[in-house]
């Protein structure tokens, strides 16, 4: 089995209402914060031991379901 650690983030051009709210809160708490962007972190355990195959499957999973390519980017790391 292989485990994929997936990060999904909003594309740079997309406004992030949740991130802006967190950013304003941190600024009002006097922290030296420039900006905050909020994304998602997911762990997917695959019934697959071949790293190349697992990578191909993960790209498919990320493009089809875990991210929306219209507004989001994804990246992942595989670990054994």
């Amino acid at each position: 089995m292989l485990k994929a650690r997936v990060k999904v983030t909003l594309k740079k051009s997309i406004l992030d209402p949740q991130g802006s709210a967190a950013e304003k809160a941190l600024k009002s708490m006097q922290y030296p914060v420039e900006s905050v962007r909020i994304g998602k972190f997911m762990e997917v355990v695959l019934n697959e031991d071949d790293k190349d195959k697992a990578e191909k499957i993960m790209h498919e999973i990320c493009q089809k379901l875990l991210s929306n390519p219209v507004i989001e980017d994804y990246s992942f790391e595989l670990e054994g």
Binding site: L10, L15, D16, P17, Q18, A21, N68, V70
Partner: peptide, 8 residues
């Protein structure tokens, strides 16, 4: 696509 409402 859809995002959270601006006022959250």
């Amino acid at each position: 696509a859809f995002l959270r409402n601006v006022g959250l």
